[in-house]
Nucleic acid binder design. Structure first.
Lengths: 342, 342
DNA sequence: ATGAAAGCGCTAACAG
DNA sequence: CTGTTAGCGCTTTCAT
């Protein structure tokens, strides 16, 4: 049987409540007894029982992290460990712990969220994806449970706290960069159009293309999986076109990796034949050949901010919905280059 | 205020204890009242309070997952989301939830583990790494807390339950494959020598090299980070040698990716000039250029088995230490090829 | 087959 | 400043 607050109290010669106060570092306890109690705790190897504490406090000092359902291969993206790192760092600092859900499908994810909320397992939830008509989001709103989204909500934007980059602007900048390099046939490769991140990046691309009066055939917009394999599929589509693009705006570095490799197979080189710009600045992006021009969206920071916001919200439920835009930084590297004259 | 067992009891016209029994599906409750109580639960939207339940049950139906400290960049490896997927699937099926630790440094990880154990937050722990002289492992052994390791423990192997591949054998097979292709100068690139996974794979390589009477200069063994950048560093060392290798056994696909890209930069092509074999069969390994010959270690399965074992151990503390070897499968792809005559 | 009551370990009034 | 007391929501003897 584990050592409890009572045991400590007995050894220290005080009442259990005093021990409790010492744990909470209550200022009304004399330094003297504090020291005595702390010594007793050390001696006995006391550790508070979280369940008991949470039961009375009606809180758990834990936050739930919801990943996309693992049916979604995108989970393979190093984006997730990286953002987990940011979330973990902030949570640890604030003495919160992390609960994660990796449901196998959407239904399971939904159930896990329900369990977390109703079972009082977590004080708040971070959603690591944002898509249209998400029942999870709806549920959280309905029961008024604190949550924040990493990414931008599609609906009820003003009521939801979220942490995001200005993806539209970043994408526009990337596209303009290609335009400045002399490219005129620029295509866009994104993930599922149901994800806000895709639509925002697409919109930035479109805005820049239109502003520059460049051709924008429908064929130049391709949606594929947020993975190396997705890049592969996209290349097969785009370079079968009559007028294939010379510049590419790609919504994720892993996709870009697939694109580069596939281009090579069909005899095209990056950046000589095709310039590539993309998003996320994954750890590997600087080390592949050629190194990627990519938007550093500061994944770690996204995680930190999301966590901080969430904890604020969990502590004060009246906290109004907030929107945090994390600045991005474009890393210009060799994958994008001046268009060669033909 | 959430609806409790008492509210349900009142509505159903029974005692709280009866409701509790219905939840546990106690066979000594008449079908009739079971139905009545269940209806009341539905009507009121009742959900059991996990904290209260855990408090009395002294268990939490949760398992802790310990990642390497996030100071370790290896966290970026898609290995982690993938194994999390396996763990999550099994945990969900057994109605367990997941607690994860992503401490910023080893000290923090240690503290988080302590908190999990002493606070009764989890019923057991899965360690996603295995290194020499790990204080976390030692602690878990000391307090006799159920845990399993993914990988092979360095010390006290027979006392610890672990799930692993036969890395020695796989590595030997990989090396022999290169030997059969005609390679004579074969080098090994591994991660930290403190990790069992590295030493096992190294040993398999050495065994095969010795058995074939091939040269094994010390320079042919390089240790680098389990990442793309690590592959880059390794190439710089190996191909500065007087007699650079023509075949490579690499302990991780991400490293291989770095190797391939770096080789390209110094004018060497894979597999024409250098054949590559590696480990893990990450999702991207089939889609890069050239596709990697790599050992599919069945990451998802490793996670499933680890979780199943752990839950068994948590339920019955007397369960003896077990060792589970998950079969691997070598995927032969284009990165390894016959050695060209010079 | 069901109810009454005790208690898991802790915190939070309320006294003093 | 510190002790007493009453629960938090649930499970579990022990009765009946």
């Amino acid at each position: 049987m584990a050592v409890t607050i009572k045991d400590v109290a007995k050894v220290a010669g005080v009442a259990p409540s005093t021990v409790s106060r010492v744990i909470a570092d209550n200022p009304r306890i004399s330094m003297n007894t504090k020291i005595r109690v702390r010594k007793a705790m050390k001696d006995l190897g006391y550790h508070p029982n979280v369940n008991a504490r949470n039961l009375v406090a009606r809180s758990s000092q834990a936050i739930g992290v919801i990943m996309p359902s693992s049916a979604d291969n995108a989970l393979q993206n190093p984006f997730f460990p990286e953002i987990l790192r940011g979330i973990g760092a902030c949570a640890h600092e604030m003495k919160y712990s992390l609960y994660i859900s990796t449901g196998g499908n959407e239904q399971e994810v939904y159930e896990e969220v329900q369990g977390m909320v109703h079972g009082n397992r977590v004080d708040g939830i971070i959603l690591l994806y944002s898509r249209v008509a998400d029942p999870v989001q709806q549920f959280l709103i309905d029961v008024k449970f604190p949550f924040v989204i990493v990414g931008k909500p599609k609906e009820r934007e003003s009521e939801i706290t979220y942490v995001d980059n200005d993806n539209v602007k970043a994408s526009k900048e990337l596209t303009n960069h290609l335009i400045e390099l002399g490219h005129e046939r620029i295509a866009f490769i994104g993930g599922s159009p149901k994800l806000t991140v895709t639509t925002d990046r697409l919109q930035g691309y479109k805005t820049a293309i239109e502003a520059a009066n460049l051709p924008a055939p429908l064929d130049y917009v391709v949606h594929a999986e947020f993975l190396t394999s997705g890049g592969r599929d996209a290349v097969e589509q785009l370079f079968a076109l009559e007028a294939p693009p010379t510049g590419l705006v790609i919504a994720d570095d892993l996709m870009s990796l697939g694109v580069i490799n596939t281009l090579e197979e069909i005899g095209l080189k990056c950046p000589d034949d095709v310039s590539i710009t993309s998003f996320n600045n994954l750890y590997l992006s600087a080390f592949i050949n050629p190194p990627l021009t990519t938007v550093d969206i500061q994944i770690y920071m996204l995680g930190m901010h999301a966590t901080r916001c969430l904890i604020e919200k969990a502590k004060d439920k009246e906290e109004p919905a907030k929107r945090i835009i994390v600045p991005y930084e474009i890393k210009y590297r060799q994958s994008s280059e001046f268009l060669k004259e033909e």
